[in-house]
């Protein structure tokens, strides 16, 4: 048995919930905010993919992709309940609060995962369903169970889970994975490390107390800022990759260029000043950055279809 297994058995929240969980507690298990980002990026994948999909089938695909993301969230909360209880940001979640028993969160997550993958396969196509199944597996097993507590590279590799949704959306339309889907994947994959490391610089104390080996905890803030800068310089050129794959046009080119400059300025500012304020500015802007890049792709694709 691993150390983690021992920690889990002695966790204070036990195996039985204190009371009857409300419907809202189950919704919290789905991580609605993460789900909204998944839905948005998957929508962009659907809209920019070459080919046609009936709007209703597209909406159904989005619904089950969202459900699959929710399943991943529930499985993550089941496994991470002990560390969630030790961090202010996550202590109010239903499992560490004892409102939902860990076993119930596990059952809920597995049921939703099976439902989402099966329905996506039956109603949309098998390629999208297979990618959704792999994404849930990657997030719940590879990231949450395997990497998160073992290596400071946890979010670098685990970031792939968050990068799959536009690829699933693309596959829902085309039935396969094109270069455009891979380019969108790369953008989110490379965006994840500077995004999360900026936050973890500020929350390093909490991660240390929870025993999560985030980069600032293991390698220190200076090395983290250096890595943020390095990844930012890889990310910004990578945001032009969709153009090479035929995704996006002039507006996207301008947005990727202008937003990329701001991203790099903020990353350099963080590297120089090393304040929490600079870290939170980069963290906040990184959310806007990804949203705007994908919004411009979405807008251009919708205008082109008029």
């Amino acid at each position: 048995m691993t150390d983690i297994g021992l920690q889990r058995e002695t966790a204070p929240f036990g195996a039985v919930a204190a009371g009857e969980p409300a419907a809202g507690d189950y919704i919290a298990l789905l991580k609605p905010r993460v789900m909204s980002l998944v839905v948005f990026t998957a929508l962009v994948g659907i809209v920019v993919a070459p080919g046609q999909i009936h709007p209703l089938i597209g909406a159904v695909a989005l619904f089950f992709i969202a459900l699959g993301a929710g399943a991943s969230g529930a499985l993550n909360m089941w496994w991470d309940a002990d560390i969630d209880a030790r961090m202010a940001r996550t202590a109010s979640r239903p499992v560490p609060q004892g409102r939902i028993a860990p076993r119930e969160a596990l059952g809920f997550g597995l049921a939703l995962a099976v439902c989402a993958v099966a329905c996506l396969g039956l109603l949309v196509n098998l390629a999208a369903a297979a990618l959704l199944a792999f994404t849930i597996f990657f997030y719940a097993v590879i990231y949450t169970i395997w990497l998160k507590r073992r290596t400071p590279q946890n979010i670098v590799i685990g970031g792939a889970a968050g990068a799959f949704p536009p690829m699933i959306g693309w596959a829902a339309v085309t039935g396969d994975i094109g270069w455009g889907a891979i380019a969108l994947f790369a953008v989110i994959f490379l965006w994840t490390p500077p995004h999360f490391w900026a936050l973890s610089l500020v929350k390093a104390g909490e991660y240390a107390r929870a025993g999560v080996p985030m980069l600032p905890v293991v390698a220190g803030p200076e090395e983290t800022r250096r890595q943020i800068l390095l990844y930012s310089w890889i990310l910004v050129p990578a945001t032009f990759a969709p153009l090479l794959a035929g995704v996006g046009g002039t507006a996207y080119l301008a947005a990727a260029g202008a937003l990329g400059v701001v991203f790099l300025v903020l990353a350099h500012a963080l590297h120089r000043t090393s304040t929490d304020r600079a870290a939170m500015r980069l963290f906040g802007f990184s959310i806007l950055y990804l949203f705007l890049l994908f919004a411009v792709l979405l807008g251009e694709a919708l205008v082109a279809q008029l």
């Binding site: 009371g19 009857e20 969980p21 409300a22 419907a23 189950y26």
Partner: peptide, 10 residues
């Protein structure tokens, strides 16, 4: 009654 209400909601 609270328990039943929450179970009903679920």
């Amino acid at each position: 009654s609270d328990m039943h209400q929450q179970r009903r909601g679920r």
